[in-house]
């Protein structure tokens, strides 16, 4: 098990290094000089050159890469071109919204999807199953921003239970913070839950056809007991895979929902940074997201091994 974890950790580090090189190279070849962009069309070439020096844009490619990478490793992400503040602070502020939001949405979607998937699988082919499948189909088809606006109309405008958007900051306390994130989390969670419930259901149904379920029934387990005790854990592997992918998506892919609810999240930060050619912010945030994805993949790998003993010896 330890060996399995260590080999995963090694491949994780190699992926990170490869990703940092790829991101740096991609930013290098993108046209558009941040210094020229910041100074406007009429800037003198000398001024632009001076600003380039100041921003650390001159020098050899390798020197700049090493400078950037070693900064990343020590938590020094550089200074934002546009905001003139350390990127690390900027990212930390946004992460304080995006991370809890993603975790909240994921918790909601798991809490909805697993029981629903189990329920549908236990009633395969019956009315309840067909109803759930139709509902999940709808959940996948409806765009989450449209659903978000619907939530705002009902719960903020009509019922006035929560405000329509904005984030008071964690300084205002845990309660108001969670309250502000609830509608966005629901809007994000429902489509994900619909996908996850379908995966759970089909994985369970496939598992239910296995020989060991028949063995369990021959021991005297009822259908429901066999489903809970034997099928569920065996069906978790594909569910974990989807969960890992969903978390990575939720972290950065919430941009539309962040816009609908005026939330200062990572998605909006990166969108603004791209439009303003704030390349150092783009680089850092993308790198951070890559790190998050790789970390989640690592955790999913560990979860696989926890679920399935056959994987522990590899």
């Amino acid at each position: 098990m330890l060996r399995y974890a260590l080999t995963r950790l090694l491949s994780l580090s190699l992926s990170l290094i490869a990703a940092s090189i790829a991101i740096f190279a991609a930013i290098e070849v993108i046209p558009g000089d941040p210094a020229a962009y910041m100074l406007g069309l009429n800037a003198a070439p000398e001024t632009v050159a001076a600003l380039r020096d100041e921003l650390g844009l001159s020098g050899s490619v390798w020197a700049r890469y090493l400078d950037w990478a070693s900064g990343l490793a020590t938590g020094d992400f550089g200074i934002s071109y546009t905001y003139r503040v350390p990127v690390a602070d900027l990212v930390a502020q946004r992460l304080a919204v995006s991370l809890p939001l993603a975790a909240y949405a994921l918790a909601l979607s798991t809490a909805i999807a697993l029981p629903v998937g189990l329920w549908a699988a236990a009633r395969r082919g019956r009315a309840a199953d067909l109803g759930i499948m139709a509902a999940t189909q709808l959940g996948i088809a409806v765009p989450n921003f449209w659903f978000a606006m619907l939530l705002v109309l009902v719960f903020a405008v009509k019922l006035r239970w929560v405000s329509a958007g904005g984030f008071p900051g964690w300084e205002a306390g845990l309660g108001p913070g969670i309250k502000a994130l609830t509608l966005p989390a629901v809007a994000l969670a429902l489509p994900q839950a619909a996908i996850l419930a379908r995966v759970m259901r089909s994985a369970l149904i496939e598992t239910l056809g296995q020989d060991y379920i028949r063995s369990a029934r021959a021991k005297g387990l009822s259908r429901a007991q066999a489903l809970r005790r034997h099928a569920f854990r065996n069906a978790l592997i594909p569910v974990l895979t989807i969960l890992g992918l969903q978390f990575s998506f939720l972290l950065a892919g919430a941009i539309i929902i962040e816009n609908v609810f005026f939330l200062p999240g990572l998605g909006r930060l990166i969108f603004q940074a791209i439009t303003q050619r704030d390349l150092i912010v783009v680089e850092s945030v993308v790198m951070l997201l890559v790190f998050a994805v790789i970390l989640v993949t690592f955790l999913v790998d560990l979860a696989y091994a926890a679920v399935d003993p056959r994987l522990r010896r590899r």
Partner: peptide, 15 residues
């Protein structure tokens, strides 16, 4: 009680 033909798959692999 009953036992089946294929012992390789007759047991739950994660238990």
């Amino acid at each position: 009680g009953m036992i089946f033909q294929e012992p390789m798959t007759a047991l739950n692999p994660v238990q």
